[in-house]
């Protein structure tokens, strides 16, 4: 099937990416642990302490059932409440990594790969479901299939082999289309049992730059994703603190030119039309666990309310 990468794809040297994976993993280990413990609280529903329902036996009487019970000559005898058992959740999480040149020309690319290692390690330790990795730029490619295990260094190094930051366009509209499509397929192929609740979550790691003209089209696709219960979080890699990028302005302050009809020229903040509702701006890797956990906590609170 699709476990092979596109035939034309150039791969980085395996030994080199193995070394890179190992080094990133040890560097980010404390952050992975921190993210794991924060996500455990958010992704796995807490033990329900509420008593509810109507049963023949149970923990406490359901007062509302008493009068119907007596009125029915003690026939309607499901008068007890029990502790509700939360539904087991399983997840399909797609990590989408920007493989375009703009990532390689700044240190955002390295930050994205470090983040990929850190987040994927945290998710693997959590054991909440399947993890996929998608690369994107002018095209998209699956760097790791949902169905493949992601526990070894080997799997990780193979993923890193596919990221060269050579794609000369950043088509986030295509990325969202592909994300929806991959999740549709993954839902059909999901091994989770009927009693389990399947959640689909995409995390995009990118410098955030895609033509402003596409923002409105992306917004339409994001609504489609939301209707299919696919959650998409955009993590903007904004590594402007490092030496290599010291002349690079943060995306937060970046403006775009707009030529108005009447010969007037205006500048507007690029992020003003950024279509993603759930996004984070990460300057340092250390910020990511807390920020990501905070965002997911907000999202789950909104969904559950």
């Amino acid at each position: 099937s699709t476990h092979l990468s596109e035939p034309s794809m150039e791969l980085r040297d395996f030994d080199e990416t193995m070394q890179q994976w190992t080094s990133f993993q040890s560097k980010t280990h404390p952050l992975s642990l921190s993210l794991t413990s924060q996500l455990r609280l958010i992704l796995t529903p807490s033990q329900s302490t509420k008593l509810s329902g109507s049963y023949r036996t149970g923990k406490r009487l359901n007062i509302k059932r008493i009068i119907p019970y007596i009125a029915s000559s003690y026939k309607r005898d499901k008068i007890w409440m029990r502790r509700a058992i939360p539904t087991k959740r399983s997840y399909q999480i797609l990590l989408c990594v920007d493989d375009s040149k703009s990532m390689g020309e700044s240190s955002s690319g390295e930050l994205a790969l470090e983040s990929l290692v850190m987040v994927s390690r945290a998710l693997t330790m959590l054991e909440v479901g399947q993890i996929g990795v998608l690369g994107f730029g002018a095209n998209t490619f699956m760097a790791h299939e949902f169905t493949e295990p992601f526990a070894s260094h080997d799997a990780g190094a193979k993923v890193l082999q596919k990221f060269t930051f050579q794609q000369d366009y950043t088509d986030i509209q295509l990325l969202i289309k592909q994300t929806i499509e991959r999740f549709r397929q993954a839902r059909l192929q999901s091994t989770s049992r009927g009693s389990e609740d399947l959640w689909q979550l995409a995390l995009i790691l990118s410098d955030g730059l895609t033509p402003s003209a596409a923002h409105e089209h992306i917004r339409v696709l994001l609504r489609e994703a939301m209707e299919e219960r696919i959650m998409i979080v955009f993590i903007i890699m904004d590594d402007t603190a490092s030496g290599k990028d010291k002349d690079k302005q943060s995306v937060v302050n970046l403006k775009k030119v707009r030529f108005m009809g009447n010969d007037e020229i205006r500048t507007e903040y690029y992020l003003d039309t950024f279509p993603f509702q759930y996004y984070l701006i990460v300057h340092n890797l250390e910020d990511l666990p807390g920020a990501l956990a905070g965002l997911l906590r907000t999202w789950f609170a909104e969904v559950n309310s």
């Binding site: 402003s212 690079k248 302005q249 970046l254 403006k255 775009k256 030119v257 030529f259 690029y270």
Partner: peptide, 15 residues
């Protein structure tokens, strides 16, 4: 803070 800008690709000297 004003030295960087996103401009349309078809822009020329005059623009």
């Amino acid at each position: 803070g004003r030295t960087q800008l996103l401009v349309p690709a078809d822009i020329k000297r005059y623009g």
